[in-house]
Amino acid sequence: RRKSKRKPPPKKKMTGTLETQFTCPFCNHEKSCDVKMDRARNTGVISCTVCLEEFQTPITYLSEPVDVYSDWIDACE
């Protein structure tokens, strides 16, 4: 008699959501930077609500707010 092989359980999909508020690289306030994605103009704007620092970068249809933040961090270095 042959043993029946069980199929492995399906893999769980990533359910965690990406951050939309970030720590400002200038004033170091946590969750003080908000990202606005202007898909019509293909630009992402991130601004700090505390020190009013602002950064704008081009985006694509695949871009997420975390991509705008990482572009800002890269531009600071």
Rank of each mutant, 00 (worst) to 15 (best):
R1C: 07
R1K: 12
R1V: 10
R1T: 13
R2E: 13
R2S: 10
R2Q: 13
R2T: 14
K3A: 11
K3M: 05
K3T: 11
K3D: 08
S4N: 08
S4M: 14
K5M: 14
R6A: 13
R6V: 12
K7Q: 13
K7P: 14
K7A: 12
K7E: 14
P8F: 13
P8I: 12
P8W: 03
P9I: 15
P9N: 09
P9T: 11
P10G: 07
P10L: 09
P10H: 03
P10S: 08
K11P: 13
K11G: 09
K11I: 05
K12V: 07
K12Q: 08
K12M: 10
K12H: 07
K13N: 12
K13C: 10
K13Q: 08
K13T: 14
M14K: 07
M14S: 10
M14L: 08
T15D: 01
T15M: 09
T15W: 01
T15H: 07
T15C: 09
G16T: 10
G16D: 08
G16R: 10
G16W: 05
G16L: 09
G16C: 07
T17G: 06
T17S: 11
L18I: 14
L18G: 13
L18P: 15
L18R: 13
E19H: 05
T20K: 06
T20Q: 14
F22Y: 14
F22C: 01
T23K: 14
T23L: 12
T23C: 13
T23G: 11
P25N: 02
P25E: 01
F26D: 06
F26C: 12
F26I: 10
C27Y: 01
C27D: 02
C27H: 00
C27G: 03
C27K: 00
C27S: 01
N28D: 04
N28H: 12
N28Y: 06
N28R: 09
H29R: 12
H29P: 02
E30L: 07
E30W: 06
E30G: 13
E30V: 11
E30P: 10
S32H: 08
S32G: 13
C33Y: 02
C33R: 02
D34T: 09
D34S: 11
D34E: 10
V35L: 04
V35D: 00
V35N: 02
V35G: 01
V35C: 01
K36H: 09
K36I: 03
K36P: 01
K36Y: 03
K36F: 09
M37L: 06
D38A: 03
R39K: 14
R39Q: 12
R39Y: 07
R39C: 02
A40W: 04
A40Y: 02
A40F: 12
A40Q: 07
A40S: 06
A40G: 14
A40D: 07
A40N: 02
R41H: 09
R41D: 12
R41A: 11
R41F: 03
R41G: 12
R41M: 04
N42P: 01
T43S: 09
T43Y: 03
T43K: 15
T43M: 07
T43P: 00
G44Q: 02
G44R: 01
G44L: 01
G44F: 00
V45D: 09
V45S: 09
I46Q: 02
I46E: 04
S47A: 13
S47Y: 12
S47E: 15
C48M: 00
C48Q: 00
T49G: 11
T49K: 15
T49L: 08
T49W: 08
T49Y: 12
V50R: 13
V50Y: 12
V50C: 10
V50N: 13
V50E: 14
V50Q: 12
C51H: 00
L52C: 13
L52S: 13
L52R: 12
L52H: 07
E53P: 01
E53Q: 14
E53G: 07
E54K: 12
F55Y: 13
Q56H: 02
T57L: 02
T57K: 15
P58C: 14
P58M: 07
P58A: 13
P58R: 09
P58T: 06
I59F: 00
I59W: 05
I59Y: 01
T60L: 05
T60K: 10
T60C: 01
T60S: 13
T60D: 14
Y61L: 11
Y61Q: 15
Y61S: 09
Y61C: 12
L62E: 13
L62P: 06
L62F: 04
L62G: 11
S63T: 08
S63R: 05
E64C: 02
E64D: 11
E64P: 03
E64M: 13
P65C: 08
P65N: 15
V66P: 08
V66A: 10
V66R: 10
D67W: 00
D67F: 02
D67T: 10
D67G: 05
D67K: 04
V68Y: 00
V68R: 00
V68M: 05
S70R: 11
S70E: 08
D71R: 15
D71A: 11
D71F: 07
D71M: 02
D71L: 11
W72L: 04
W72G: 02
W72H: 02
I73H: 08
I73N: 08
D74L: 11
D74C: 10
D74Q: 13
D74V: 10
D74R: 14
A75Q: 13
A75E: 12
C76N: 06
C76V: 13
C76W: 13
